[in-house]
Design a protein around this nucleic acid. Structure first.
Length: 595
RNA sequence: GGUCUCGUAGUUCAAUGGAUAGAAUAGAAGUUUCCUAAACUUUAGAUGCAAGUUCGAUUCUUGCCGAGACCA
């Protein structure tokens, strides 16, 4: 539809003004609702090209389009705005085409591949609210890219080594009494996380004792025995001490099992996991190679650095004086390994919080410096922090919202609301549970994805579980109502599968409204991919649901006596439902048949 | 100190340089003999401040004020 209008405008420029205006340079915008029409062409910028003032230009183009195209039936000009009205037949034709396309809005596979990283947790803490935004975002972007014809590889890097996990290990050895997830039924990531907290408590206690004995605080922080024990453990781990290694493997295995359960509840999955314990040595090799080739330099103490002052940044440490690696070292190794594993990927996307923007800027520069041309195809999908009404999430102050707890709370609230409204009569327990999960998680995902990723956002638990307004459940409810209509149609014996569109002669404005929003879908899917922003889809599907609700309110399909109208509206409803379902699936949200 | 991000209704979010800055929510007032009222309709309310660029600025540039993150 849009492209046909643009072609018409391009033609008009050629024939009326003898000017070349490429179709790609023409922008249309939706007409404001207070004006007649659906598409608007702004003529202010073209006065020079046409030699006429904006109003005359708009008038001439409007006349040309009405006379020479089938789709534009009428127009009006307000200042430099040319508002175009599309012919009913063009809308009907569009509906017919959309209805005939089972993969409407999605591009067939192009053979291009892309890698999307998300989640990437530490193994010493359970997943929290921030991880939810991260996972939903990464998973959704991968799915949106798939809808644009890419093959997406979903991966994560697990920070499974380092002092943090050793802290949990020490605490478990000291206070754990050999307890395991099997022995006490606790989720593995929670158990290990608990010992990390336990370590911190003990550490603080020891610091207090030492300072009481007269040691100054800075020294006490270094000298606390429990910290020394953790450091010793790390050293033993690096030497692959069998006992330490076994404990490390066991505790990490508990964590992974716990994470797996959380991911399953979240509805996300991965094609491949990377572990830092596997990649950090490769990174080290690369740094040493870079030192040999003169890309990096060494300081007097033996530490290795990169100088990025030509790029407007400063010097950055790559390898410590004692030869141990830093985050950057590991990330270099991981990136290289991934391009080896998947040589066909055109791009690597990192879903990581915006506090690491500097880190990734540096990483990509370094990769380019050591000669990897794909470095410029790496993209940091940066997202803002999630704030709570009570303030910032701080693990030390216990104000972290646990991912499992939150998901459970959402599902429970969905159950309460649904029961209150009497919606689940006739449901089996399994059906009811499935529905509550759909609604609870739909509310959560939609709430976290509707905001522009790069912006910091406020998550209000109380508000998010209100299933009103710009929310997932609102959209799910709209879908359920359409499904009810289609069920009713079946009961009444309406078969609209091979509906003959040529019988339809006119449209009600609310029908046209729905078709016009549905028609935007492919364009939105593309924009969402270009901008790596599920928020584009979230906003879109809300608009669609709202538009359908207007239609629903205005027209009672089964009250109509004209069978052609009934069927055409059933087709319209079916197309709307499918588009809602398709768009929601890009966000990882399921839609129910009834709720 | 340096780099970056962000300041929009009471609140949470929108707006490829375009028309009278949109929604939602909270507030006020309505709609159900009819397919699901978790809906719909009406109403009131905002661009931090000051310049600049131009037909036109929430958007681009500069300065200031305010919030946050990162780098030493």
């Amino acid at each position: 539809m849009e492209s046909e209008i643009k072609e018409g405008i391009s033609k008009a420029f050629k024939e009326l003004f003898n000017q070349e205006l490429a179709v790609v340079d023409i922008a249309l915008q939706p007409t404001k609702k207070e004006f007649e029409g659906s598409h608007t062409f702004v003529t202010f910028p073209y006065s020079r090209l046409t030699g006429k003032n904006p109003v005359e230009t708009a008038q001439l183009i409007g006349e040309f389009l009405t006379a020479n195209t089938e789709i534009v039936s009428d127009f009006n000009v307000v200042k430099g705005f040319l508002n175009l009205t599309i012919a009913d037949q063009a809308w009907i034709g569009l509906l017919k085409d959309i209805n005939a396309d089972p993969a409407y809005g999605h591009v067939a596979p192009t053979g291009k591949e892309v890698m999307v990283e998300y989640s990437s947790p530490n193994t010493n803490k359970p997943l929290h609210l921030g991880h939810l935004r991260n996972n939903f975002l990464g998973w959704s972007v991968a799915t949106i890219l798939e809808a644009n014809g890419y093959r997406a590889h979903r991966v994560q890097i697990i920070n499974d080594r380092g002092i943090h996990i050793c802290k949990s290990m020490v605490a478990w050895l000291k206070f754990g009494n050999q307890e395991t997830p099997e022995s006490n039924g606790e989720k593995g990531d929670k158990l290990v996380g608990r010992y990390y907290v336990r370590f911190d408590q003990e550490y603080k206690k020891q610091i207090a004792e030492l300072t009481e004995q007269g040691m100054d605080k800075g020294q006490a922080e270094k000298e606390a025995p429990i910290l020394k024990e953790a450091q010793e453990l790390l050293l033993k781990w690096e030497q692959k001490d069998p006992k330490v290694y076994e404990l490390w493997q066991n505790m990490n295995a508990w964590v992974y099992k716990g994470f797996e359960a959380t991911y399953e509840q979240m509805g996300v999955n991965f094609d491949k996991l990377y572990f830092e314990s596997d990649t950090f040595l490769l990174g080290k090799d690369e740094v040493l190679k870079g030192l040999e080739s003169g890309v990096f330099f060494q300081k007097g103490d033996g530490s290795i650095w990169v100088d990025l002052s030509d790029d407007g940044l400063d010097e950055k440490l790559l390898l410590r004086a004692d030869g141990t690696s830093v985050y950057m070292t590991q990330d270099i190794g991981t990136a290289i390994l991934r391009f080896r594993d998947y040589p066909k990927i055109a791009q690597q996307i990192y879903t990581v919080g915006n506090e690491q923007e500097y880190h990734f800027k540096v990483l990509f520069l370094i990769l380019a410096k050591i000669g990897y041309s794909w470095a410029r195809e790496c993209y940091h999908l940066s997202y803002g922090m999630v704030d709570l009404p009570t303030g910032k999430m701080k693990s030390r102050e216990g104000t972290v919202v646990d991912a499992d707890d939150l998901m459970k709370e959402m599902i429970d609230t969905a159950a309460e609301h649904t029961t209150e409204l009497g919606k689940i009569e006739g449901f089996t327990t399994e059906q009811a549970d499935e529905l509550h999960e759909m609604i609870g998680l739909g509310a959560l995902k939609y709430f976290l994805l509707k905001v522009d990723p790069k912006k910091r956002m406020m998550f209000d638990p109380a508000e998010s579980i209100e299933f009103q307004g710009t929310t997932g459940p609102f959209i799910q409810y709209t879908h359920a109502r359409i499904a009810a209509i289609l069920r009713r149609a079946k009961e009444l014996g309406f078969d609209f599968q091979d509906f003959d569109f040529s019988q339809v002669s006119e449209l009600h404005p609310v029908e046209q409204g729905v078709i016009s929003v549905v028609a935007d879908y492919p364009g939105k899917v593309k924009i969402a991919a270009d901008e790596y922003s599920p928020a584009v889809i979230a906003q879109y599907v809300y608009d669609l649901a709202k538009e359908y609700n207007k239609f629903y309110q205005e027209i009672n399909i089964f009250k109509e006596t004209d069978e052609v109208k009934i069927k055409s509206r059933l087709v319209l409803s079916s197309v709307a439902a499918q588009t809602i379902k398709s768009a929601m699936s890009l966000l990882g949200i399921k839609v129910p048949q009834r709720m």
